[in-house]
């Protein structure tokens, strides 16, 4: 597989959220606005990229039986790095993402890529895979966050689009997350079938 294909598969064809349904908790939990989705997506991308690189570098040294705990420790290390960096430099984003930053550890997407891809491929492909999947995840989160923000608070990246009197508040609350994601996946299914 060419590196370009490897990189671009994360966006539509194997999009972690819309197609593989991985990492649903942060997807639904933090996407009340586009900016939160972007922050969460980039944080996850960083963890995914770094853990993919490290896992593919050390894969020969890890006995098969303890590979999952070993992967989890590697991932947890990078999550701690993100957590502390964000707390220091982006305190407001850190506050709005809250619990979901430490929970990147248990995002099935990160562990899934380490197990399914990085533990079998070389460093370069793993890097490209991590970056592509991470950005695909970010793309999905920003799309979902953008739609919810426009419908639920009349804004897009904090720019007012229409007055607050006309918003449908339910879209920024928890039911909106499920419903918007449901219709997004349905729309993608229909587009794919028509191809």
């Amino acid at each position: 597989m060419s590196q370009l294909k490897n990189f671009s598969k994360g966006f539509i064809k194997e999009n972690p959220v819309f197609v593989l349904l991985l990492g649903m908790c942060p997807t639904l939990g933090v996407t009340s606005s586009a900016i939160n989705g972007l922050g969460m997506g980039l944080a996850t991308t960083f963890v995914l990229l770094m853990s993919n690189i490290v896992v593919s570098l050390v894969k020969k040294g890890i006995p098969d039986k303890v590979r999952i705990p070993a992967f989890i420790v590697i991932i947890a290390t990078f999550v701690t790095v993100v957590e502390l960096t964000m707390q220091a430099y982006l305190p407001s984003l850190f506050k709005s993402l809250g619990l979901f930053i430490p929970l990147i550890v248990v995002n099935c997407l990160v562990l899934g890529r380490a197990e399914a891809f990085a533990s079998k491929n070389n460093v370069l492909s793993s890097m490209v895979d991590g970056l592509g999947m991470g950005l695909g995840f970010t793309f999905a989160l920003v799309t979902l966050g953008g739609i919810r923000e426009v419908l639920g608070s009349g804004k897009f990246f904090d720019l007012t689009i229409y007055p607050e009197n006309y918003v449908t508040l339910v879209f920024v609350l928890s039911p909106g997350a499920f419903i918007v994601l449901g219709y997004l996946i349905a729309a993608l299914n229909l587009i794919k079938k028509n191809d």
């Binding site: 339910v170 994601l181 449901g182 349905a186």
Partner: peptide
Amino acid sequence: PKGLKGTPIALIAAGILAMAFM
């Protein structure tokens, strides 16, 4: 409906359940 089969309709049902819990 065709496109909603499987996960999408499950997500929408979950959304309505969440609305009830609100």
